[in-house]
Amino acid sequence: MWCYEKRLQYPVKITKTCPKTAQLIISQYGGPDGELAASMRYLAQRYTMPVKAVGGLLTDIGTEEINHMEIICAMVYQLTKNLTPDQVKAAGFDAYYIDHTTGLWPQAAAGVPFTSLEFQSKGDAITDLVENLAAEQKARTVYDNLLRIITDPEVREPLKFLRAREIVHFQRFGEALEKTKEQLDSKNCYYFNPEFDKQFLKTRL
């Protein structure tokens, strides 16, 4: 089970309303490489992981991604707080506003709704861990793209933090892949699926 801690993992204190920035950042809530997809991906994959420590890592990173989702939502919320109808129209936030006012709803920057098609849980530890390595890189690229064009330091600081976490998670998934590889056939790493064909595993896990 999960226990809520009433604080953000990284502080968010944005004093300047900017619906345009909110519309870009919301992609890391419900977009294809967003934090919601990240947490759902890892928390879905963990049940069938053949190496127990890797299932543990997926739980911990999946949990951290929920923290990141909360950081992104806090940013969008603060950027659109006290919005006037004129600001809505001027900033191009009007399409979102018509459907959700200033409520939080998971979508990509271009308005595409969140869908589980954005991630995979394939039931093969090697496939899933390689997906996770790619996912961390894709999210890093989104943060790079945001940091290139957003100038407000109050918005940049949490984005820099979130970008740095993608790199750390990439390293940990790489280590998880190394741990999983130890269980494979040393001559042919694709001889069997370590999540399904358990009779071939080197150690009973």
């Binding site: 090697i126 390689v130 390595l133 990439f170 390293q171 998934f173 790489g174 280590e175 892949l177 190394e178 590889k181 130890e182 494979l184 040393s186 790493c189 694709y190």
Partner: peptide, 13 residues
Amino acid sequence: MKETHLAIASVPC
């Protein structure tokens, strides 16, 4: 599989 192999990714620990 301590050493690196063809056709699979490796990240140093």
